[in-house]
Computed example of a mutant assay.
Amino acid sequence: MNAQSQSVTNVGVIPKLNIKKKFETLWSINLEIAPRIELLEGGTLSTLENSTFYTLTDITTVVSRTVGVSNSVGMGYLTRIEEDQSTAHRFIQQYVLIDYKGTYRIAHRFRTDQTFRKGGVPTFRARYRISSDIALRGQTVDPNEFYFKISNEYLGILRDQANDIEIRLTPTLGYNFKNKNKVEVGLDYRIDSFINSNPDHRYWIQVGYYFPL
């Protein structure tokens, strides 16, 4: 794209299934399955038109080890199955720091990843995400209670000559069930293509179900 390219606005939905299993006291494995379905597309929000179609499915596995009190280091692998049945492979490295502040906690995630496609140019990204879970009642998120979650992420993207920056903002309302399962519903807003064209805007409605084994 050149500097004169027009912005693109997309609206879609991302249902997520997240499964986590702890081993002993220090190790854990996290599996997430997240398909994407695009619903609307246009130049701006006011010109959106119906464009419902399946986009892709991400299957992500991350193995983490706790270090210190609540921080962790992890490595993972993502398989992306795209609408034309082609696949992409992504390798993930991350470090997470968690700080508890009374009725809420703040998590900092530093992540790098490398994505490879057959016949395509590799993509390298450096990512920083800050997020917070806030109890809506009392000091902690107890069973059978709602909570608010918000995250803000910044991504630097290196892909041959198509370098880019992406920013994500995701406010979410969650509910913690008695059995420690959780459901979260929120809006994942993404803006990118700052460098090579006019910014693109993507709005994803996220519906996630999380449960530990």
Rank of each mutant, 00 (worst) to 15 (best):
N2S: 13
N2K: 07
S5E: 15
Q6A: 14
Q6L: 15
N10P: 00
G12I: 06
G12C: 04
P15V: 08
K16V: 11
I19K: 01
K21P: 00
K21H: 09
K22M: 04
K22H: 04
T25Q: 13
I29T: 11
I29Q: 02
L40F: 14
G42L: 12
S51M: 07
Y54W: 14
T55P: 00
D58A: 01
I59L: 09
V62D: 02
V62L: 06
G68W: 12
G68I: 09
S70V: 01
S70Q: 13
N71K: 03
N71E: 11
V73M: 11
G76N: 03
L78I: 13
T79D: 04
E83F: 07
E83A: 15
D84M: 12
S86Q: 14
S86A: 12
T87Y: 11
A88T: 10
H89M: 03
H89C: 00
F91P: 01
Q93L: 11
I98A: 07
D99A: 10
Y100E: 11
Y100R: 06
G102D: 07
Y104I: 02
I106K: 09
R109M: 05
D113F: 14
Q114L: 13
Q114D: 10
P122Y: 13
F124W: 14
R125W: 07
A126S: 06
R127I: 15
Y128N: 03
I130T: 11
S132L: 08
L136V: 08
R137D: 09
G138N: 05
V141P: 00
D142W: 00
F146A: 08
Y147G: 00
K149A: 04
I150W: 06
S151L: 08
N152Q: 15
E153N: 06
Y154G: 05
L155P: 00
L155H: 11
G156D: 10
L158I: 15
R159D: 08
R159K: 14
R159M: 12
Q161M: 03
A162E: 14
N163P: 01
D164S: 14
R168A: 05
R168F: 03
T172K: 10
T172L: 06
L173F: 13
G174T: 10
N176G: 00
N176H: 14
N176S: 05
F177M: 07
K178Y: 07
K178A: 09
K178R: 12
N179A: 03
K180W: 01
K180H: 05
N181M: 09
K182R: 15
K182I: 09
K182D: 11
E184S: 05
L187N: 12
L187H: 05
Y189F: 12
R190K: 10
R190F: 08
R190S: 07
S193Y: 14
I195W: 04
I195Y: 10
I195T: 08
H201R: 14
R202N: 15
R202H: 13
I205D: 00
I205L: 15
I205Q: 01
Y209N: 01
Y210W: 08
F211M: 09
P212L: 05
